[in-house]
Simulated scan of single mutants.
Amino acid sequence: MTHPIAWLMQTFALLSPVGQGILLLWILGMIAVPILKWTLGSGAERIGITIGVLLQIALVLSILLPVWGVGRTLAAWIAVSGLGWLSEVIGSRTGIPYGPYHYTTVLQPQVMRVPVIIPLAWMMMMPPAWAIGHAASAALGVPGSAVFMIILSALAFTAWDLYLDPQMVHWDFWRWERKGLYFGIPLINYLGWFLVAAAITALVGPSAIPAPPLLLVYFLTWILQAIAQLAFWRLVGPGIFGLLGMGVMAVLAWMGIP
Score class of each variant (00 low, 15 high):
250 A>M: 08
226 A>E: 01
221 T>M: 13
232 F>H: 10
68 W>T: 02
47 I>E: 01
61 L>F: 10
209 I>S: 12
62 S>D: 09
202 A>R: 14
217 V>H: 11
237 G>T: 09
74 L>D: 01
208 A>G: 10
78 I>S: 07
111 V>R: 12
147 V>N: 11
67 V>E: 13
193 W>H: 04
48 G>I: 07
235 L>A: 01
60 V>C: 03
243 L>F: 02
245 G>I: 00
206 P>A: 07
216 L>G: 12
255 M>I: 10
100 P>A: 09
1 M>V: 11
153 S>N: 07
20 Q>S: 12
221 T>I: 05
193 W>F: 10
194 F>W: 07
128 P>R: 11
113 R>Q: 14
141 G>L: 01
85 W>T: 05
191 L>M: 14
233 W>M: 05
210 P>S: 08
196 V>T: 09
24 L>H: 05
168 M>E: 00
14 L>N: 11
120 L>K: 08
148 F>E: 13
107 L>P: 06
228 A>W: 13
91 G>I: 00
13 A>N: 15
231 A>V: 11
86 L>K: 04
89 V>W: 14
23 L>D: 04
46 R>E: 12
178 R>Q: 15
181 L>H: 13
23 L>S: 06
118 I>H: 05
154 A>V: 00
179 K>I: 07
152 L>W: 04
10 Q>V: 05
43 G>K: 07
203 L>N: 06
148 F>K: 12
224 L>D: 02
7 W>N: 11
91 G>E: 00
136 A>C: 03
103 Y>S: 09
9 M>D: 11
95 G>F: 04
231 A>Q: 05
244 L>S: 00
27 I>R: 02
243 L>Q: 00
60 V>F: 04
24 L>Q: 11
106 V>F: 13
236 V>G: 00
176 W>S: 11
157 F>A: 14
234 R>K: 15
258 P>E: 03
56 Q>P: 02
60 V>M: 04
145 S>D: 14
93 R>W: 08
57 I>V: 15
116 V>F: 14
209 I>W: 12
147 V>E: 14
89 V>L: 11
161 D>A: 03
126 M>A: 12
74 L>Y: 00
60 V>K: 04
102 H>S: 14
11 T>D: 09
125 M>D: 04
132 I>P: 06
200 I>G: 06
81 S>M: 15
205 G>A: 01
70 V>C: 01
235 L>W: 00
186 P>C: 08
199 A>S: 12
204 V>D: 07
